[in-house]
């Protein structure tokens, strides 16, 4: 009888103790809330936001200052892509210097809407022409804007890539 009553109060004591321990955890955090908050205020910190070097945001075709890229139009990335998000349109054109007919990149079509950022195209590229860009703000109002042409207008193949 007395034991039952003692157990009853012991249970209450233990319950309250357990609850207070839990409240201690949240209480500790609200006391140090200023220091512990790790939320980034994203659109405000845009200027200082630094992505990691290997961050995969989108595929970009690198151009140098003379508007030259390194893509030979070999289509290795197109083959490597699991989702068909890269389309290489190439043509055989006459080289103005040597006069020989040669495969050349016409348009590098990139369907961002299908891309899963798996990085396989970058691994497949024999000339390091493409790489993963850091831009991650891809939202657009029209789906068609997600289909991009990566080579800039008038760009040419950089010299010495094919050797």
């Amino acid at each position: 009888m007395f034991k039952a009553i003692a157990d009853y109060f012991k249970e209450i004591y233990q319950t309250i103790r357990g609850l207070l321990v839990g409240m201690g955890v949240t209480g500790k955090y609200i006391a140090h809330a200023r220091r512990e908050i790790i939320t980034q205020e994203y659109p405000d910190n845009r200027d200082t936001l630094q992505m990691f070097e290997r961050f995969r945001g989108e595929v970009v075709l690198l151009h140098n200052e003379d508007n030259e890229h390194r893509c030979t139009g070999c289509s290795a990335c197109e083959v490597a892509c699991p989702n068909g998000s890269i389309e290489i349109i190439w043509a055989r054109r006459e080289d103005p210097e040597t006069g020989k007919k040669k495969k050349q990149l016409e348009t590098f079509v990139y369907h961002l809407s299908m891309c899963t950022m798996c990085n396989l195209c970058i691994l497949a590229c024999p000339t390091d022409a493409i790489k993963m860009g850091h831009n991650f703000e891809h939202a657009v109002f029209d789906r068609s804007q997600l289909t991009k042409v990566l080579n800039r207008p008038g760009s040419r193949l950089e010299k010495g890539v094919e050797e």
Partner: peptide, 15 residues
């Protein structure tokens, strides 16, 4: 996630 992002470039679907 930060460790993953730094090493393999993605946070969730790392591949």
């Amino acid at each position: 996630n930060d460790i993953f992002e730094e090493t393999c470039g993605a946070r969730l679907t790392m591949n």
